[in-house]
Amino acid sequence: MAAAKAVHKKTTRPGAAGPEELQQQDGLMPTKVSLTLNGEAVSTEVDSRTLLVELIRENFIKTGTHVGCDTSQCGACVVHVDGRSVKSCTMLALQAEGADIRTIEGVATDGELHPMQEAFREHHGLQCGYCTPGMIMSALDLVKNNPDPDDREIREWLEGNLCRCTGYQNIVRAVKAGAEAMRSGE
């Protein structure tokens, strides 16, 4: 998986880091990154400390991916990196070099909602909408690995996605219905 590509690796003996080196470590020198975003080849320059979510939101202005915390708890920033769900705040932008990234904006095709998106609307699986993109991206990864998840499996899978509005019940219903629609659509 391209995400594992370590661009940032550096071996330094502790204590040897001077200000210049820190500056380099902090990535104040822009570096080019190229990747596929929702099927489109894109590239830009970022500081090496730039997070993937910042790259998506600020460089490519795909603001459907949200930031809800700074400790990787909330899951509002979940995207797919080479087909797997990843909290995009836990990954550096440069780690995504060459990767295939899909965000919530890339889920519907030609204006037609994905069955999982439809299911969230049909089952009132969202209220304020802030956690929703991350929920949907997580749910899609769950169903990819487990096409017929039960309630318990859904609830456990979504442990890393916080929602403060819905009490989760309608999200669970939506994921279940979305999974069913995806099964019958195949």
């Binding site: 502790p14 204590g15 040897a16 880091a17 001077g18 200000p19 820190l22």
Partner: peptide
Amino acid sequence: LKKCIPGCE
């Protein structure tokens, strides 16, 4: 000490 303390300026 300066050498050994991580990040000591």
